[in-house]
Simulated assay, not measured.
Amino acid sequence: MNQPQHEYLVVSRGQWDEKASREDVQRAIDQFYAWYEGHLAAGRMMPGSRLAPEGKLVAHGLVTDGPFAETKEIVGGYWFIVATSLEEAAELAAQNPCLAFGLTLEIRPLDAERARATDITNETPPPWRQR
């Protein structure tokens, strides 16, 4: 029996290792796109995109230039993995050739449920977590 497939967001973070050569990084990028496109064709991934460096930060009714993040937290792009479990998605993501050159990947399951203030979520402040 086939296990149900779920979608997982992959967030690419960080910057290239400055000690690596541009040629080695480009080779990893080229290998990444071959790997990525193969998995897209096989239905194991869904398209994402690189993110442009400019952006806006919106909070409390204010709009400012951004994004504002530490170098290790800079989000460079995203895509999706289709897998039966978070572990399977992470194993697939771990094969990304760009990991050898300073990037990190965050794998997150998508939650199709509508948000409710009574649920414990990423946005829940610590005092609310006490039941």
Rank of each mutant, 00 (worst) to 15 (best):
N2W: 02
Q3V: 04
Q3H: 08
P4A: 12
H6S: 08
E7N: 11
L9S: 09
V10G: 00
R13D: 02
G14D: 11
G14W: 01
G14Q: 08
W16C: 12
R22W: 03
R22L: 14
E23K: 14
E23W: 02
Q26N: 14
R27H: 13
D30N: 14
F32M: 02
F32W: 12
Y33N: 08
A34I: 11
W35N: 08
W35H: 12
Y36W: 09
E37A: 10
L40M: 11
A42F: 01
G43V: 00
S49G: 12
S49V: 00
S49E: 01
A52C: 03
A52W: 06
E54D: 11
E54C: 02
G55S: 09
G55R: 05
G55E: 03
K56P: 00
K56T: 11
V58N: 03
G61K: 06
G61A: 09
D65L: 08
G66M: 06
G66F: 02
P67S: 08
F68E: 08
F68C: 02
A69Q: 09
A69H: 06
I74S: 05
V75E: 10
G76T: 07
Y78C: 09
W79N: 04
I81R: 00
A83D: 06
T84N: 09
E87H: 11
E87R: 13
E91K: 14
E91Q: 15
L92K: 01
A93Q: 10
A94V: 07
P97E: 13
L99V: 08
T104E: 14
E106C: 02
I107A: 07
I107S: 05
R108K: 14
A112D: 05
E113F: 08
E113T: 11
E113V: 05
T118I: 11
T118L: 08
D119S: 10
I120V: 14
E123C: 07
E123M: 13
T124P: 06
T124Q: 09
P125S: 09
W128D: 14
Q130D: 10
